[in-house]
Computed example of a mutant assay.
Amino acid sequence: MRLDKLEIYLNQLLNIAHFRDYCPNGLQVEGRSEVHHLVSSVTASLDFIQAAIEAGADALLVHHGYFWRGEDPCLVGRKHRRIARLIAHDVGLLSYHLPLDAHPELGNNAQLAHKLGLVETGRFGDQNIAMHGTLSPDMQNVKGLRMNIERALGREPLVIGEDSKTVTRIAWCTGGAQDYFDEAIRLGVDAFITGEISERTVHDARESGVAFIAAGHHATERYGVQALGEHIAQKFGITHQFIDIDSPV
Rank of each mutant, 00 (worst) to 15 (best):
S198N: 09
Q226I: 10
A205I: 10
L228T: 04
D182F: 09
G224W: 05
A215H: 03
A214Y: 08
A205Y: 01
E199L: 10
D190N: 12
F192I: 07
E183P: 07
I185A: 13
A227P: 05
R186M: 14
H231M: 11
V202Y: 01
H217M: 12
I193L: 15
G188R: 13
D204N: 11
E207M: 06
S208T: 12
I193G: 09
I185F: 08
I193S: 09
H217F: 09
H218N: 01
F181Q: 10
E196C: 14
R206H: 06
T194M: 10
F212D: 07
I185Y: 04
Y223T: 00
A219N: 03
A219Q: 13
I213P: 01
Y223S: 04
I193T: 08
E199S: 13
D204P: 00
G195C: 15
A215N: 03
H203C: 04
R200E: 09
F181H: 06
D190L: 12
E230T: 07
V225F: 04
A219S: 14
T194C: 15
H203T: 08
T220I: 02
T220G: 00
T194Y: 03
A211K: 03
F212Y: 15
H218P: 02
L187A: 15
A191D: 05
A184G: 03
A184E: 06
A214G: 08
E207P: 00
E196Q: 12
L187H: 10
V189N: 11
A191N: 07
G224M: 10
A215W: 08
A227D: 05
A184V: 10
A211H: 06
Y223E: 07
E221W: 01
V202T: 04
S208R: 08
E207T: 11
E221I: 08
I213S: 01
H217V: 14
G224D: 07
E207I: 05
I213C: 05
T194F: 06
F181M: 13
V225I: 13
S208A: 14
A205W: 03
E199Y: 05
Y180F: 15
A184H: 02
A227S: 12
E221V: 05
S198V: 06
D190E: 14
E196V: 13
T201P: 01
D204I: 10
G229I: 12
V210Q: 01
I213D: 01
I185Q: 11
E196I: 11
E221F: 05
T201R: 09
R200P: 00
E196M: 14
I197H: 06
G216Q: 03
R200V: 08
S198E: 01
E196A: 14
H218C: 09
A214C: 12
A184N: 06
T194I: 13
S198M: 11
G229P: 10
L187M: 15
I193P: 02
A227R: 08
G216K: 04
I193Y: 04
G229V: 11
S198Q: 07
A205N: 07
R206L: 15
A219K: 05
G195P: 11
T220H: 01
T201K: 06
V210M: 12
I185N: 11
H217R: 07
I185M: 14
